[in-house]
């Protein structure tokens, strides 16, 4: 049995990722410009905002196409799915976030978190290329399973939905925060005007909830698929391996979030915070747990 790794192609893939980062940077700056224009007191400046937003969206689409080609080439270079180590998981995962976001632009209310999404994608790609990068490698036999495709695809999708919801929760929290309301700082004042452009808080809350429930269903499936795979690969469906522990913690936090949405006194701000805590746990699971905790899921590919 043999595999063909194509290092030349993985280098080309990397170039595409860098190119995507450059265009995401442009998109991010343009979205930021759009927001600041919206916040302007001058009518003329505000009037140009829509045009700017359209340019930013086009930039983001171009960036996502470059990004997508980079992901695809990486997969071809490794002759397998491109999500077997942290670098690959980062580039594929962030691509899915952007793709879902671009589709979700059909929902008008979501546009205003574009600055956050493009900035976040840039951050992920930056750390992927700077910290997590590894040359293409074959899969260790434990990872050679179609469950890698199923389990990880769904995990990436779930993360993308939670990610967008988290952005909405941040908007919610800022919009309802007392310190923002009271602050006399100029910067906060600008932010307040930007936030005023956002949909009403209850609309943001509802939108975040809808992204979170899809995320939760997908995450539940991730958990079950992971257990089925663990039964095949590690001889037990559940063993409280560090990564299993964190998958469970995240699931439990979001279950708490769903309850909070039906508990008097816990809707609104508290549940927004819970959703944010859940997303921080996801980021923690992906970074700190992968890099520093001992366990069976040592798949970062870093030494």
């Amino acid at each position: 049995m043999g595999i063909a790794l194509n290092e030349g192609l993985s280098q080309i893939s990397l170039i595409f990722i860098y190119a995507a980062m450059a265009v995401y940077t442009a998109a991010f700056l343009t979205f930021a410009n759009h927001l600041s224009r919206l916040a302007s007191e001058k009518k003329k400046i505000r009037g140009e905002a829509t045009k700017i937003e359209r340019i930013a969206i086009i930039l983001m689409i171009i960036a996502s196409l470059l990004h997508g080609v980079g992901v695809l080439l990486r997969g071809i270079a490794a002759s397998r799915v491109p999500w077997a180590n942290m670098y690959e998981f980062s580039i594929t995962g962030s691509f899915v976030v952007v793709a879902i976001f671009l589709f979700a632009l059909a929902i008008k209310d979501i546009r205003l978190i574009a600055t956050f999404v493009s900035g976040f994608t840039l951050l992920i790609l930056g750390s992927a290329t700077a910290i997590f990068y590894v040359e293409v490698k074959s899969l260790m036999p434990a990872l050679q399973s179609y469950w890698l495709v199923i389990h990880v695809t769904v995990a990436i999708l779930a993360t993308a939905f939670f990610n967008i919801a988290a952005a909405l929760s941040i908007a919610y929290i800022l919009k309802t925060a007392a310190w923002v309301e009271k602050s006399k700082l100029k910067l906060v004042g600008t932010m307040k005007r930007i936030l005023a452009m956002f949909p009403a808080v209850d609309k943001i809350e509802k939108l975040a909830y809808r992204f979170n429930i899809i995320g939760f269903i997908l995450w539940s499936f991730t958990l079950i698929a992971g257990a089925i795979w663990a039964e095949r690969a590690w001889h037990r469906y559940w063993g409280w391996d560090t990564k299993e522990v964190w998958t469970f913690i995240i699931w439990t936090i979001y279950a708490g979030y769903l309850h909070a949405n039906a508990t008097r006194g816990w809707t609104g701000k508290r549940s927004a915070w819970l959703a944010l805590v859940g997303f921080v746990a996801i980021l923690f699971n992906f970074t700190v747990v992968n890099l520093f905790f001992k366990g069976l899921h040592v798949y970062s590919g870093l030494k």
């Binding site: 043999g2 595999i3 790794l5 040359e135 490698k137 074959s138 036999p141």
Partner: peptide, 15 residues
Amino acid sequence: DFDLKNQTNVGTPLD
């Protein structure tokens, strides 16, 4: 099976 072909991968078990 160990990989003998691919530079970055020599000696990695494949199966």
